[in-house]
Design a protein around this nucleic acid. Sequence first.
RNA 1: GGGCCCGUAGCUUAGUCUGGUUGGAGCGCUCGGCUGAUAACCGAGAGGCCCGGAGUUCAAAUCUCCGCGGGCCCA
Length: 988
Amino acid sequence: MAYFKSETQRANFVKREEELLEHWDKERTFERSVERRKDGEPFVFVEGPPTANGLPHPGHVLTRVVKDLVLRYKTMRGFYVTRKAGWDTHGLPVEIEVEKNLGINTKGEIEAYGIEKFNKKCKDSVFRYEKEWVNATKRVGFWVDMDDPYITFDINYMESVWWSLKEVWKKGLLYKGHKVVPFCPRCETTLSSHEVAQDYRDVEDPSVYVKFKLKQEKDLYLLAWTTTPWTLMGNIALAVHPSNTYVKVKLNAGAKDETLILAEARLDALDDDYEILERFEGKDLENLEYERLFEYAKVEGGEAHKVITAEFVTLDEGTGIVHVAPAFGEVDYEVCREKKLGFSQPVNSAGHFTQEVPPLEGMFVKDADRLIIELMEQRGVLYKEAKYLHSYPFCWRCGSPLLYYARESWFIAMKSLRDNLLANNEKISWYPAHLKHGRFGNFLDGVEDWALSRERFWGTPLNIWLCTECGKDFCVGSIEELKARATNTVPNDLHRPYIDEVVLRCEDCGSDMRRVKDVIDCWYDSGSAPFAQWHYPFETDKFKQNFPADFITEAIDQTRGWFYSLLAVSTAIFDEPPYLNVLSLGHILDEKGVKMSKSKRNVVDITAIFNNEGADALRWYFYTAGPLSDDIRFSEQGILEKQKKFLNTFWNSYFFFVTYAAIDEFNPEVKAIPVANRNAMDRWIISRWNTLTTEVIAAIERFDVHVAARKIEEFVVNDLSNWYIRRSRRRFWVPEENFDKDCAYLTLYEVLVSLCKLLAPFVPFLTEHVYLNLVRSGDEHKSVHLCDYPSPDESLIDTALEDSMLLLSELVEAGRRTRSDACIKIRQPLREVVIVCNTEKQDKVTSLTAILKDELNVREVTLVEASSKSEFAAAEEYKQADVDEDTTLFLNTGLDKELIEEGMVRDIVRRIQGMRKDIDLEYTAKISIMYEGDEAVKEAITNLADYIREETLAVAINEGLPSVESEQIYVKTWKIDKKEVRLAIKTA
RNA sequence: GGGCCCGUAGCUUAGUCUGGUUGGAGCGCUCGGCUGAUAACCGAGAGGCCCGGAGUUCAAAUCUCCGCGGGCCCA
C-alpha cells in the first residue's frame, strides 16, 4: 500500500486552509506549540492592542502576519513564547462612534442623555467588530490567545493603570496646568490631531498690523501682526527673535507721523516712506514694557505686556514681532509658561467672549474680528489691515472653524524625564535602525510634558480627588485604598459616572474630596500594557516573567503613539525600557500609491483576499514585497502571482513527489543512504538547502524578512523545481527498484520535509498540509508547528559543487543560445560539444558532464585547453559561443543519418506522450502504437523501436492504421520536419 | 512650515551602507524553443535622461547640497 496519500494536481489552497483551521482548533495545535516550550527561555512579546470598533484593515493584517512570523519562528527555535491578545477599548474615537449613532454631538447632549447610558453604549460599541477581528486574525493564521485577552476597560487593568499613575504622582511628576487644544466651539469637544487633519480648508482671514505703544518712550510703537484679531483680547506679550536685526523707523506720512519698531527684513510691510533711525538686535528689546491694547480681560498668575525673545519668530511674513496669547496658541502657552508670564482667558468654552470684555460679551470670537478692528481704529492703534489666505482647520463633524483654546489639564512632567527617556532608548534596538536617533530620538530630545487628562466620559477615570475646601489633591492607587478612604459606597465598576459619586475624606482638613471629572488619555492605557495586562502589582509572577518585552512590532505611525507611550510610562515608573527590540512597519497604500483610508474609500476588503487567494498567498506577498519598513502598494494581482509562482511551484514539487512515491510505494522509513553516497545532483540540492537555511536564519534574526523569503522563493522555484526535479525526473520513472532511484526519492523527501519546517512560520497552512502527509509516522497529533526549526549541517555544504553547478548552468545557457542561432532544435541530437577552458574549470565540469550532455542533447562532451581554441574556431561545423572571459563553447552542428533518425524518433515520442496526456492515461498504463509515414519515418521507427517502447510504455509498434474508427483508438496526424506522420494509440 | 523615510523598465523590485566592467531579476509584450510534476520552463529581443538640478571625484544609481513627487509624524 502506498505510504503517502495521493494528491490532486490543483492545490485548492483556500479549501486546504479552511480544513486546517478546523484541524488546529480540534488538535489545540497552537496551545500545544506554546506549552511544549515552557521550559525554554522566554521570548516576550506584547501585543499592541487594536480597537475593535472598526473593521480590520489590510495594514492590521500586515502587522499580524509579521508578529506571527517572528513568534512562530522563535517558538520553533525553542523559545517559550506566550501570546496574549489585547483590546484597546477607551477613548474619543469610541465616543464619537456612539455619538454618531445617537445623532448627538455635544457634551451637553451626552450629559442630558445620561453618562451611564452613554458609557454602556460605548462599552457595547467597542466590540462591535470583534467577530470580524477574531475571524480575520484566525483566518490569516495569527496564533494569539484570544480567549484570555487583556482589555483596557477591565477593572483589573484599570486598577493597574491607577497604581502606575499613583507612582507618577508620588514622584511629584503629576501636575495641573493648561493645554492649548484644537477645540470645536459648537460640539464643545477637543479634537484629536487626526481629526483635525481631516478637514483643512483654505480661508481668507483679516490680517492686521497693530501698534503697541511702549511705556518707556513717548510715541514709539512696536508693530505686530496677527491673522486672528480676536486673540488680541488675550494678549500677554510680544515676541521678537533674539538675534535678528530690528529697526526703529520714522514714518513720513503727514498726520500719521510716528516712530515704529519692526524687523529690518520685514520693512516691505510698511506702506509709507520711512527713515531708519536706529538698528539693533531683537534681544535689545527684551523686557521693554508696552501699554495694553484693551483694558478689559484680567491677567492672572504672572507679569504681562512686555517684550520677550523666542526662537520661533520667523521673518517669512508679518513684522518679525509676534503677538502672544497663551490662551489661544500652544507655542504661546509654552513660551509664557517658560518665562513665567501671566494668563488671560476672556473666552468661554463655547467660543464666546465673557463678561470680562463688555463690548463683546456673548459674541462668538470669529464674528468679533470686525468689531475689534473698528475698536482699534478708533484708538489709533491699527497701522493697516489686509486679507490673508491660509489653510485653517474645521470640525469634520459640524464644519465650524476650530479654535485653539487653553483648557485646564493634568500633565505628566515628561520633560524632567528627558535624560532617562534618552538613556532607556539607548538600550533598545530599532528596526530600521535610523528611527532610534532619527524620528524617535529627535522626538525624545524635544519631548513635551504629557497632557494626560481628557474632559470626556468613556475612559479610565483620572484617579485624583481634590478637597473641596483646602484644594489638597490625593491620588488613589488601588481599589483597596479607595475603599479605605471613601466615605460612601465604592462601586464595582470604576467607570464614570459611578466613580464620580465616591467621596473621600481630606486628611488635612477633614472636608469632602471630589474626583476631578476627567478621564485619562487612552494612550496611557495602552502604554501601561506591559504591567496592566498582568494586573501588576496586585499579582506579580507573570509580570516578572514578562518584563521587559523582547519584541514588539507595529506600523511607523506608532513611533509617537504606542512606541512612545510604552517607553514614557515605563520610564516614569520603572526607569527601564519596556521593550528591547522594536520593528517598525510601513503602511499599505492602494494601487495608485495613496494611503488606504476609510474616507478615501480605497480600503481593500481582506475577506475577499482570503476567499480568492488565501492566507498563505497574502502572507507570502507581504513577506516578499520589500523591506518591511517600506510602504507597500497593495495589489490583489500581486497576491495572485505569488500564489501561482511560489505556492503552486512548491505544491507541484510536492505533488510530483507523492505521485511517484505512491506508484513506487516508496517508504522513507526503511531507507537510509548517507548523503556522501548519493550522486552530484543530490549532494548539490542538499548543499543548496543547507546554505539557504544558514542565510534564512541570519536574515530573520535581522528582521530582514524579505531577504529570507526571497531566498526561499528562489530556492524553491529555481533550484528545487526548475533544476533538481526537472533534471532528476527520469530517475523516478525507472520502473524497477534501484539504488539511484532510492537516492532521488530520499533526497527529494528530505528536502521537502525540511522545507516545510523552514517555511512553516511564513506559510503555516500549506506547510502543515504537506508535512502531515509526508511525515506519516510517530505522534498522531503531530504538526510542523511542533517541530524544531531546521539548523544547517555545515558538513553537507559543498561550495565547490555549488560553484560547479553554477558554471554548468552558464554552459547550458551558452549551448542553447548556439542551437537557437544555428536553428537547430533541442530535440535534434548532436554529435559533440567542446568546452574550451582552463584546467580548474575542466575539473568542475568533469563530474557534471552527464547533465551537460542531457541538457544540450549531445553525445559527447570534450574538454580542451585554450591552446586548441583556434582549431575549432576554424572548423565550419563548429558554432561558437562565449561563456565568460576564458571559457568558450563550440557546438558540432554536423548531422548524419543516425542523428537525424534519432531526432525524428524523439519528435514522435514527444507526440505520443502528448497524446497519452490528451486522453488522460494513467502514468503507468501500457499502450500499443500504430503509425503511417514515409520510408524514412518507417526506418527510423524500426531502428529505434526499443527506445520508443521504453519511453512511451508501448508493448507493440505496428505500421498501418486500423481501418475502422473506434473509441478505444486515438488517432492524430502530425507534421514533423515537413513530413506527414499519422499516429494512433490505444491502451494495451 | 519642521523632522524622518521612499523615488531604478508599463508594473513589482535587486544594487545605495562600503563609489569602480556594459544597472541585474520577475510579471507583461514580440519571436523562437522545450515539456508525462508545474496555470510552468528555456533562449533571444524590445523596453531605463537610475525623479530633476548642482557639487565632490580619475570615476556617482551609490556620497553632499538644493528642488520635485509620494508617505508618516508634528506644527
